[in-house]
């Protein structure tokens, strides 16, 4: 079988922050009634608590994000995604649910640096300054849908469709060019 490659194969740009495509990442899309006991049990077996609206929680086997009232996104190791999808599908066999391995249909970016907020601020209609840690924000990045969250101090992770990965990289790279900062400090209030 051919080797899996990520959309931009880890391309990196240095601006006033570092913008990098994160390489191969496993992602499972889970469509189900999120109050289903079978689902909660299956998630608990992998160390995930009950997903709360818009929250993303990290666990040993990856991260679990609430995407909509009937959709979750499980982010895991690329090599384990297929196996994890099988395990979850088996656990949810008798439930009205769908597990999709979307690892190769998405791209993940990491924006690292004290001013990483500003890169996103220029591209999204969302209120980035008010975005709490642990919240998955789905919104519009210029002309395409995207989702992002604060994945660490001074780091934002961003997911988009693979087909628009090079467009998104172009946006992020231009938005992060030195001299185009919005303010001197990390945020307008600090």
């Amino acid at each position: 079988m051919s080797d899996a490659v990520s959309a931009l194969q880890g391309a990196t740009h240095e601006g006033f922050v570092t913008v990098a495509e994160a390489g191969l990442v496993g992602m499972l899309s889970i469509r189900c009634d999120l109050t289903s006991k079978t689902l909660l049990k299956a998630l608990k077996a992998h160390g995930f608590p009950k997903p709360e609206p818009r929250q993303i929680v990290e666990a040993e086997s990856g991260a679990l994000a609430w995407m909509s009232p009937d959709e979750l996104l499980l982010i895991c190791d690329h090599a384990q995604a297929a196996q994890l999808a099988r395990t979850l599908s088996e656990a949810l066999e008798k439930t009205h649910a769908l597990i999709g391995n979307v690892s190769d249909a998405r791209a993940l970016f990491r924006i690292q640096g004290a001013k990483s907020d500003q890169v996103i601020m220029k591209l999204c209609p969302a209120d980035i300054a008010a975005l709490p840690t642990g919240e998955m924000r789905r919104t519009r990045l210029a002309q395409v849908p995207a989702a992002f969250w604060r994945s660490g101090p001074n780091e934002i992770s961003l997911i988009c469709f693979r087909s628009v990965a090079s467009y998104v990289m172009g946006l992020l790279e231009i938005s992060a060019r030195p001299g185009s900062e919005l303010f001197e400090t990390a945020s307008p209030s600090s």
Partner: peptide
């Protein structure tokens, strides 16, 4: 009302 987000 589905996800609670206020946006433009």
């Amino acid at each position: 009302p589905c996800c609670g987000i206020t946006a433009e």
